[in-house]
C-alpha cells in the first residue's frame, strides 16, 4: 500500500531535496569536514529507505528526475572553465602540464594498485575516474561498464579526503606555492577539494576549479584507452 505511494516520482524528488536542505543546515551549525552536506544527505536517505524498507529502484523513480540535470551541469562546467581560464592565461602551459601529469598519475596508480591488491575488475572499472568531478566520473564509468553508483560514492569520499587532508599532505611534502596547492586540490579532489582551496585563498580556489574541469576532460579522453590496454 505505502510502497505504491513511494513509487510516485515526487517522493524521490522531495526526500532528496529535504535531505540536502537539512544537511546544509546541519553543516552551518557544526562546521566540521565530515559533515559534508552531500555525504550526510546520502547517508540520511539510505537510512530512511532501509528503515521503511523502500527499494533503491522505488526511490530512483523520482531520483532520476534529479540526476537528469547532471547532463546539462557538465555542459555548464564548460562555461565555468571558460570564465576561470581568462584569469589564469599567463601560466597556462605549465598548468596544463601539471594537471595532465597528475591526472594520468591518478588513473594509472589507482588501476595499478587495485590490480595489485586483486580487486575485482568491475571495481577497477568503477574507480579509474575517482579523481574527477562526480558527473564526469559517472559518465566515464558508464562507458567503461563499471558501476556508476560505486563511482559516485567513492568520488565523494575522495573529495572529502582531499578537502580534509590535502593541504596538510602538500605542506608536509614541502609544497609552498599557492598555485601548486590549488591546482593539486582540484586535480586530485575535484569540487569538494576546490571548496577547501577557496578557504585557503582566492588564487588557490580559481586554480583548483580550473584544474577540476581540465582533469575531467583529460580523464574522460584517456581512461577508455588506458582501460582497453589493460583489460
Amino acid at each position: 500500500m505505502m510502497q505504491q505511494f513511494f513509487q510516485l516520482p515526487v517522493f524521490g524528488v522531495f526526500i532528496t531535496l529535504i535531505a540536502y536542505f537539512l544537511a546544509v543546515k546541519l553543516r552551518k551549525s557544526w562546521n566540521y569536514v565530515l559533515l559534508n552536506p552531500v555525504l550526510i544527505a546520502i547517508a540520511g536517505i539510505i537510512c530512511f529507505l532501509l528503515i521503511f524498507r523502500i527499494n533503491f529502484e522505488t526511490y530512483n523513480v523520482g531520483g532520476k528526475y534529479i540526476s537528469f540535470f547532471l547532463g546539462p551541469s557538465v555542459v555548464a562546467l564548460g562555461v565555468f572553465f571558460y570564465e576561470k581560464y581568462e584569469e589564469v592565461k599567463q601560466n597556462l602551459k605549465i598548468f596544463i602540464l601539471a594537471v595532465l601529469a597528475g591526472g594520468i598519475t591518478g588513473v594509472l596508480s589507482v588501476i595499478g594498485l587495485l590490480l595489485l591488491l586483486k580487486a575485482p575488475e568491475v571495481i577497477t572499472r568503477s574507480l579509474a575516474a575517482k579523481s574527477v568531478t562526480t558527473p564526469i566520473a559517472i559518465e566515464i564509468t558508464r562507458l567503461l561498464n563499471g558501476i556508476p553508483e560505486i563511482t559516485a560514492g567513492i568520488v565523494i569520499a575522495v573529495g572529502i579526503f582531499g578537502n580534509a587532508f590535502g593541504p596538510f599532505i602538500l605542506k608536509k611534502t614541502g609544497i609552498k606555492s599557492k598555485i601548486a596547492i590549488g591546482t593539486a586540490l582540484g586535480t586530485a579532489a575535484h569540487g569538494i577539494g576546490t571548496a577547501r582551496a577557496f578557504e585557503e585563498g582566492k588564487l588557490q580556489g580559481v586554480y583548483s576549479g580550473l584544474a577540476m574541469c581540465l582533469n575531467g576532460i583529460i580523464t574522460a579522453l584517456i581512461t577508455p584507452y588506458l582501460i582497453e590496454l589493460i583489460f
Partner: peptide, 26 residues
Amino acid sequence: PISVAVIFSSILTLYVTAIILEKSGK
C-alpha cells in the same frame, strides 16, 4: 583494497601535480 588504492592514488595525484608547479617556480 579500495581504501588503500584510493588513498595512495590520491596522495600521489596531489603530489605529482603540485611538485611540477612548485619546481617551475609558479
